[in-house]
Amino acid sequence: MPTKKLEIKNLTFTYNKGTSFAKRVLDGVSLSFGAGEFTGLIGRTGSGKSTLIMQLNALLKPESGQVLLDDEDIHADKSKLKEVRRRVGLVFQYPEQQLFEATVRDDIAFGPKNMGFSKEEINERVRKALDLTGLTPEIAEKSPFDLSGGQKRRVAIAGVLAMQPEVLILDEPAAGLDPAGRDEILSNIKQMHERTGITVILVSHSMEDIAKLTNRLIVINEGRIVMDDPPHLVFQNTEELISMGLSAPQAALLTQELIKKGFAIPPDLHTVDGVVAALFDVYAKHLHNSTHV
């Protein structure tokens, strides 16, 4: 277990507290994210996951409980909140809607510029952010509005990376993209993680995407953490996931159906590669047996 980067201790939060609309959305959540870990977070609409990630960069304040960044309570010192939000970068859904500058370069430079860095430092940060998101120097000079949906989204992520956060939280980074765009941005995020060792938390409604990318998967339901395991273990519980408004990749759903029909395959298959290998194995054995009959 790597050292704890971010820790949530017994966190509870209620929206509209004291009104008739009061709704407890987080209920005694305790979690920790190790430095450099790549974690997936899934939960149905209204499960509390968006509230949870807003707590992680201090956009919301816990009703009770704590959020610790490098063992320090993020709300301990109000003057440090800005610093917390820089260290924990949050990429919202549809971040391309927040692009506004005339060129990609200016848009990415906006954050560092506001922090008062020197021109050289800003240029260096923009260069790194472009590189990490796989954007070419030619694209940097274009207007963000001339780019494709996937490219625009990478510009928005680059804008957050230019702040050089220690933790990067991505809320549905692939929503609305076509399959090729989805694969492209997700493999890009994965490479970025491998190259920088940054702590990544990925929120997604796409079980297929999350199965491919993460090595730890947290399931949140009605404001509580109900599963926290590697994806291959989480996706074995297909019925439970479905009852929580979630699902599993088709490969995992197929695996569970085949096991019910008596196929001798491992129960924790959850990717196309795994299922193909296991089924080929079954077929090869079957062929072998029948040729010997």
């Binding site: 076509d178 399959p179 090729a180 765009g181 297929e208 990749p249 088709q250 490969a251 197929l254 196309v272 299922v275 193909v276 089924l279 080929f280 077929y283």
Partner: peptide, 20 residues
Amino acid sequence: LGLDVPQVTEIAERLAAHGV
């Protein structure tokens, strides 16, 4: 065309390519 097929279709495609 930048699209894909459902996972089960891909599984069938790849098994067939292996001679199943």
